[in-house]
């Protein structure tokens, strides 16, 4: 009995050590990056040091660019991807279900969709500018073009790979076609749909910055191009750090939402 307890505590110690290790590792990597950054900026190449970037970030709050602080610019960018994602997650999911579940729809839309998603979003900029000018709508449109494909592809994959064994249960219980779609196929595709939500979010965040670097007067992408034009490298790096931080937060938020909505995916095992 006593021996058993010792075994248990040894296992606990191992568990704790592992836990500490996994908490320390990311901290070490960030510290290493800062150290490398310091070393690179001390050689006098004009590359700003972390301290300069920090000062510039603080200054951005004291003296806003175009009347917006850093938070304001992040907000403008987030609003753009928010509108685009709203469209992605409604129309995109519906379209993915359509071509994933109905073979005829896939045969009809498939080739067009494949051609559409091969065109990089930035290639649309000339046409969109010609049609819609340089307001808010064309920017949102470019983000949509850049992120729609990733959700449609994921939803389509999930809907066309529904396990036959789930559908068999529906057949035995005399499910109607509508019930097969809504009660079996769609929920079984939810994890694939969430993969689409995650990839479309990160794709949108990438595309919005590119879109903003080409003619905008607010947003994080604008901050970077502004920094480039005025040789304000600390401002460029402030923008880059903001992009990284916000991108990471978005990834965490979508992952958290998935866990809330699909509790069964938390621990995947054979059923």
């Amino acid at each position: 009995m006593k021996k058993n307890n010792e075994m248990l505590s040894a296992a606990e110690i191992r568990e704790k050590r592992l836990g500490v290790l996994y908490k320390i590792l990311p901290v070490i990597s960030v510290l290493l990056l800062v150290a490398l950054w310091l070393a690179a900026s001390s050689s006098g190449t004009g590359f700003p040091s972390p301290i300069q970037v920090w000062d510039r970030t603080v200054q951005l709050f004291v003296k806003p660019v175009k009347k917006l602080s850093l938070i304001g610019h992040v907000g403008v960018s987030l609003r753009r991807i928010g509108l685009a994602l709203l469209f992605d997650w409604t129309f995109g999911i519906a379209f993915g279900v359509l071509i994933g579940w109905f073979p005829r729809a896939k045969a009809f839309f498939g080739p067009l969709f494949n051609a559409f998603r091969a065109i990089p979003p930035l290639a649309w900029i000339p046409l969109i500018t010609l049609w819609f000018g340089i307001g808010e709508f064309p920017k949102v449109l470019i983000v949509i073009f850049g992120s729609l494909a990733s959700i449609v592809v994921n939803v389509q994959a999930g809907m066309s790979n529904v396990e036959k064994m789930y559908l068999d249960v529906g057949t035995v219980f005399n499910a109607t076609p509508r019930q097969r779609l809504l009660k079996i196929a769609f929920p079984s595709a939810l994890d694939a749909i969430f993969a689409g939500v995650r990839t479309s979010t990160s794709a949108a965040w990438m595309v919005v910055l590119a879109a903003e670097m080409l003619g905008a007067n607010a947003g994080v992408g604008f901050l970077i191009s502004r920094g480039m034009d005025s040789l304000d490298m600390p401002l460029v790096l402030t923008g880059m750090v903001a992009i990284g931080v916000v991108g990471a937060i978005l990834a965490i938020v979508t992952q958290f939402a998935e866990r809330m909505i699909c509790p069964w995916t938390r621990r995947k095992k054979s059923y």
Partner: peptide, 10 residues
């Protein structure tokens, strides 16, 4: 069913 066919989301 042999493979049980339970729906993991339910």
């Amino acid at each position: 069913f042999q493979s049980m066919n339970l729906m993991p989301w339910r």
